[in-house]
């Protein structure tokens, strides 16, 4: 990627307040074209608000920047024309058929050859067989494909997806992500919020937000490396039942059972070893050093963000 290329999203110091609550707190975000960025963070952390700020649905209280080269505020109309935004809640008309919905979207964007375009979109997202069915009667997976079809119909340069795969089965999720990668390969930039770690790992890069603040940014490997978190894995009879004993112990960020194993992590190597030392006396459980997972890191970051928020 050459440095002179313009970023698809380049925003600085975005702030959005609702009353006294700061929902988005000085968020900087830069994303190069053709990249897929996973936007992660706990519920209510400001992911949806940030997406809305970027696509012009909300006006920031402070901060500025560009989106596809257009100013966030004055270029709102131009941004809308080149951006596809998929809302968290299904945003198309349930009392229209799949085809009718797509026809409507195509006309609103003033597209030419509406019929052909809709045909192609139906084909591409495998919706053709049910094109004349009312949208309200479709299951989650179909609705999600339709929503994606609707937001790529006008061939946008940027896709903003707000938890696009919530409530969708694994097979449909995989197909959805294959499609996202295909779109990115065509040069479309994608910013998608998600709660799924496996999806985060399919992104080129990750942005983690908590309490309205951007806490981490980079590829999954970068974030793991930067975190400085240490982890241990316990296996053996009863290992999974040890989690409650470690939860509030100093030096432990997270202790969680995965199947029959126990995964423990903390920011300080010495403190963590001290914390698990009493449990290691039981020789039936085997302890070994491990790599922290993205989830560990996010839980750790969330704790940090909360401490910051409380201190402020």
């Amino acid at each position: 990627m050459n440095e002179t290329q313009h970023a698809a999203i380049d925003v600085k110091g975005l702030v959005k307040r609702y009353g006294t609550r700061t929902v988005v707190d000085h968020v900087d975000l830069r994303l190069m074209p053709g990249r897929i960025c996973g936007f992660l963070g706990p519920n209510g952390s400001g992911k949806t608000t940030t997406l809305r700020l970027i696509c012009g649905l909300l006006t920031p209280d402070a901060g500025n920047g560009t989106c596809l080269g257009h100013d966030l505020i004055t270029g709102r109309d131009a941004i809308k024309r080149q951006t596809g935004y998929m809302t968290q809640k299904f945003g198309l008309y349930e009392d229209l058929t799949i085809r009718e919905n797509l026809d409507f979207v195509a006309r609103v964007y003033l597209l030419d050859h509406v019929r052909d375009r809709v045909d192609r979109a139906l084909e591409r997202l495998d919706l053709a067989s049910r094109q004349n069915q009312l949208t309200g009667a479709l299951s989650g997976g179909w609705k999600q494909r339709l929503a994606l079809a609707a937001c790529v119909l006008h061939e946008p340069k940027l896709l903003l997806l707000d938890e696009p795969t919530a409530g969708v089965d694994p097979k449909a999720r995989r197909a959805f992500w294959d499609e996202i990668h295909a779109l990115a390969a065509e040069g479309i930039t994608v910013l998608t919020s998600t709660h799924y770690m496996d999806e985060a790992e399919r992104c080129h890069e990750i942005a983690y937000i908590a309490y309205g603040r951007l806490m981490a940014r980079g590829t999954a490997e970068d974030i793991v490396a930067q975190s400085g978190l240490k982890a241990w894995l316990a296996t053996g009879p009863g290992a999974d039942k040890l989690a409650p004993l470690l939860r509030d112990v100093p030096g432990v960020t997270a202790a969680a059972a995965f199947g029959l194993t126990l995964h423990v992590c903390g920011p300080d190597e010495v403190a963590l070893e001290a914390a698990i030392a009493p449990l290691r006396r039981d020789k039936t459980v085997k302890w070994e050093k491990s790599e922290p997972t993205l989830e560990d890191i996010f839980i750790h970051l969330m704790g940090q963000a909360r401490d910051n928020a409380e201190a402020a």
Partner: peptide, 13 residues
Amino acid sequence: ERGTMENLLAMPV
């Protein structure tokens, strides 16, 4: 109420 407004607003209408 049905949540289609947000989608409509995101489009250039």
